[in-house]
C-alpha cells in the first residue's frame, strides 16, 4: 500500500498545469481529487513518473451560467456540486447521481471532472453527462477544443483526452420545458459503485411523454444512451404500461461485463427494471 516513487507538481493555473503535464516525462497522471488514482497507485497498479495535482487550480472550480448552458469547472468537488443552486435549477439529475457517489469523505475530495475523465464504466457521472448531452471543454498547449459526450467516452477508462490535455470544464445545456429527472442506482452496499444504474430525464406535455433521455451506467465499457427506450417513449402516454413496454428495450445494444456482483445476462435484466423505475420517477408517476 505504498506507491512507487513519483515526481509531484501542484500548479495554480491551467497554463501552469498544462506545462507541468508537458514537462512531466513519459508517464504523467493528472490528479483531480485522487479518489481513484491514489488507491490504484497504492496497489502499484499505476506507477506514474509524475503526478500533476490540480487541487490548487482555482479557475477550474465552481459553476457559472453562460447563455444557454451552465458550465461546471472540472475541479468542482462532488460536495460543491450537491449544494450548487444552478445545478439544482438546471440539472438536478447531476446532483441526484452525485449524492450516491461513495461517501461524504470521498465527495469532499473527489471532483466532477475527475470522475468524468477517469471514465469508470461503473462511475455514476458519465451516464448522467451523456444523458444531458454535456460538452467537454478540453485544453491543450495549443488551445481549446470541445467534444460532445458521445465522443468523449471512448472505451474502458479511456476518453477523447489526448496526452498533454486537460479536461477543464463541462458545459451542460439548459433544458427547456418541464423536465423531471431521476437517477436509479443499484448496488449492494451504500458506498459501492453501481452494479447498474439508470439516469433518466423526461419532458412531459400533459399526459404524454414528449421526450426522454436515458443514460446507462455499467452496461458496457462506456456509458450508453438507451436509444431504443428513448424512441419508444417519445410521444408515448405517460402510463405505467407504456413506460414498462419502452423500458423492456433498455438492454438493446448493451455489452455489460460479468463479475462478482452480476453476470451479463442479469445486468441486462436489471437494466430493464431500473429503467422502468427511473423513467416512472422522472415522469412523476
Amino acid at each position: 500500500m505504498i506507491p512507487a516513487a513519483f515526481a509531484y507538481a501542484r500548479p495554480t493555473t491551467i497554463d501552469e498545469a498544462l506545462q507541468a503535464v508537458a514537462d512531466g516525462g513519459e508517464d504523467v497522471k493528472i490528479m483531480a481529487g485522487g479518489q481513484s488514482l491514489i488507491p490504484v497507485m497504492r496497489l502499484r497498479l499505476a506507477a506514474p513518473e509524475t503526478v500533476v495535482d490540480l487541487t490548487r487550480v482555482a479557475e477550474m472550480r465552481g459553476v457559472r451560467e453562460e447563455g444557454d448552458a451552465i458550465v461546471i469547472g472540472a475541479m468542482t468537488t462532488h460536495s460543491d456540486v450537491l449544494s450548487d443552486p444552478l445545478i439544482a435549477q438546471w440539472a438536478p439529475l447531476i446532483a441526484d447521481a452525485t449524492e450516491t457517489v461513495a461517501d461524504r469523505q470521498v465527495r469532499h475530495r473527489g471532483t466532477f471532472g475527475g470522475a468524468l475523465a477517469h471514465a469508470d464504466p461503473a462511475g455514476d457521472l458519465p451516464a448522467v453527462a451523456l444523458a444531458l448531452d454535456a460538452e467537454f471543454v478540453i485544453a491543450g498547449l495549443n488551445g481549446r477544443r470541445t467534444v460532445g459526450a458521445a465522443e468523449f467516452f471512448v472505451d474502458y477508462l479511456t476518453t477523447a483526452l489526448e496526452e498533454g490535455e486537460l479536461l477543464v470544464e463541462i458545459r451542460v445545456p439548459k433544458l427547456q420545458g418541464t423536465w423531471g429527472m431521476h437517477y436509479e442506482k443499484f448496488n449492494r452496499v451504500a458506498q459501492a459503485w453501481s452494479i447498474v444504474a439508470v439516469a433518466a430525464a423526461v419532458r412531459r406535455e400533459g399526459g404524454v411523454i414528449a421526450e426522454a433521455r436515458i443514460g446507462l451506467t455499467n452496461m458496457g465499457p462506456v456509458p450508453l444512451r438507451a436509444s431504443g427506450v428513448e424512441a419508444a417513449l417519445a410521444g408515448a402516454e405517460a402510463t405505467a404500461e407504456a413506460i414498462a413496454a419502452a423500458a423492456d428495450r433498455a438492454a438493446e445494444g448493451t455489452s455489460p461485463s460479468s463479475d462478482l456482483n452480476a453476470q451479463a445476462d442479469y445486468r441486462q435484466h436489471l437494466v430493464t427494471v431500473l429503467t422502468r423505475r427511473a423513467v416512472t420517477a422522472a415522469a412523476g408517476l
Partner: peptide, 12 residues
C-alpha cells in the same frame, strides 16, 4: 455460482 472476476469498477 457467481462469476469470479472482481468488479470492473475503479479500474483496480
Amino acid at each position: 455460482e457467481r462469476a469470479t472476476a472482481g468488479t470492473i469498477a475503479w479500474g483496480g
